[in-house]
C-alpha cells in the first residue's frame, strides 16, 4: 500500500515570529531605530550584514537590515526609514507593540576573513545601518584589525544617524571617523561634499593596497566609489558591497531580488566586488 503523503504544516520559513518592541529611538525626521526582543525568549543570533523581514499584522512585510545589537540586553536593532506603506507603519510603532520577524537571511560582511587588514567603512545615507553591526563587531575584536576608518555621508546634518554614537566613535583613539554632508546648515562646521570626497584624506595615512573596504549606500555612490577606490590601488577582491532589491520570500525562491544570476536575499546582500562589478555597469538590470 502506497503510504499517504505526509501533511506537514508549512514551517516558519514563510511565517514570521512575534517580537516585542522594547524601544524606539528617533534618529531623524523620517527614520527610527527599533529595538526588538523575541517573545519566546530565544536568543536571536545573526551576522553583521544580514537582514530580517519585518512584518506588521495584516499590512505587509519589508526587508530591513539588522542595524545592531544592544550591548547589555542583546535586543535586536533595526533602523527603518519611512518611505512606503509598510515602513511608515513600522515608524509609528511604540514600545510594547508586536512586530513579526523572519530571518536572519543572507550573507553578511566577511569580518572573520579580513582579520589583520585595515578596514575602511564607507557609508552613504541609511547605508550606515547594515554597517553599524560590522563596526560594533570590529570594535569588540579591535586587536584583530589594523586601522579602522569610518567615512559617512548624509544628506544634511539633521539626517545623520546614531548621532550620540557617532560622537562616541569620534572620541575613540582607535577609530578614525570622518563625516560629511551634501548640504550643511547654519551650525555645521564640518565637511561638505559627497562621501567620496573624504577619500583623499584617508589616503594620506592608510595603505590603500592593504585596506579592506565595506560599503553600503545608493548604487550611484557605490559605482563612483568603486572607481575611486580602484584608482587609489584598492584590489577589487578587498572591496565588499551591500546591495538591495525588491524582496518577497527572502529565501531564494520567489525570484524578485535577482540581480543578474545572483539572488540578493541568498547570495548577498553582501558581495565581493568581482562578483558584481560587471552587473553594476548594466543599466536596468
Amino acid at each position: 500500500m502506497i503510504s499517504q503523503a505526509t501533511s506537514s504544516p508549512v514551517p516558519n520559513l514563510f511565517l514570521p515570529s512575534p517580537f516585542q518592541v522594547t524601544g524606539v529611538r528617533r534618529e531623524t525626521s523620517d527614520t527610527i531605530t527599533l529595538r526588538l526582543r523575541p517573545l519566546d525568549g530565544e536568543v536571536f543570533s545573526f551576522q553583521p550584514g544580514q537582514f530580517n523581514m519585518l512584518y506588521l499584522f495584516g499590512i505587509g512585510e519589508v526587508p530591513i537590515s539588522i542595524s545592531g545589537v544592544h550591548p547589555r540586553t542583546h535586543d535586536l536593532e533595526h533602523t527603518v526609514r519611512a518611505v512606503g506603506y509598510v515602513t511608515r507603519a513600522l515608524a509609528r510603532l511604540r514600545r510594547g507593540d508586536v512586530v513579526g520577524v523572519r530571518g536572519p537571511f543572507g550573507h553578511g560582511w566577511p569580518l572573520e576573513e579580513v582579520r589583520g587588514h585595515s578596514i575602511l567603512i564607507l557609508a552613504g545615507g541609511i547605508g550606515l545601518a547594515p554597517l553599524r553591526p560590522a563596526l560594533q563587531y570590529l570594535l569588540a575584536h579591535r586587536p584583530n584589525y589594523e586601522q579602522i576608518v569610518l567615512l559617512y555621508g548624509a544628506r544634511t546634518p539633521a539626517d545623520l544617524l546614531y548621532q550620540p554614537e557617532l560622537e562616541r566613535w569620534r572620541g575613540r583613539l582607535d577609530l578614525q571617523v570622518f563625516v560629511t554632508v551634501d548640504r550643511g546648515d547654519e551650525l555645521w562646521r564640518g565637511h561638505i561634499g559627497v562621501v567620496t570626497t573624504l577619500l583623499p584624506l584617508v589616503e594620506r595615512f592608510l595603505d590603500m593596497r592593504r585596506a579592506v573596504v565595506l560599503m553600503c549606500g545608493p548604487e550611484v555612490m557605490l559605482r563612483v566609489a568603486v572607481r575611486e577606490l580602484e584608482d587609489r590601488g584598492v584590489p577589487a577582491e578587498q572591496i565588499f558591497l551591500s546591495l538591495e532589491r525588491n524582496m518577497k520570500c527572502a529565501v531564494g525562491f520567489c525570484g524578485h531580488c535577482q540581480f543578474g544570476p545572483a539572488f540578493i536575499c541568498r547570495d548577498g546582500p553582501v558581495f565581493p566586488l568581482p562578483r558584481v562589478r560587471s552587473l553594476l555597469e548594466i543599466r536596468e538590470l
Binding site: 503523503a5 501533511s7 511565517l15 513579526g100
Partner: peptide, 15 residues
C-alpha cells in the same frame, strides 16, 4: 494578547 499567532496551512496536499 501577546501579539499574533499563526495557524499554518495543514491541508494535506493532493495525491
Amino acid at each position: 494578547g501577546q501579539g499574533f499567532e499563526w495557524t499554518p496551512s495543514t491541508d494535506p496536499p493532493p495525491r
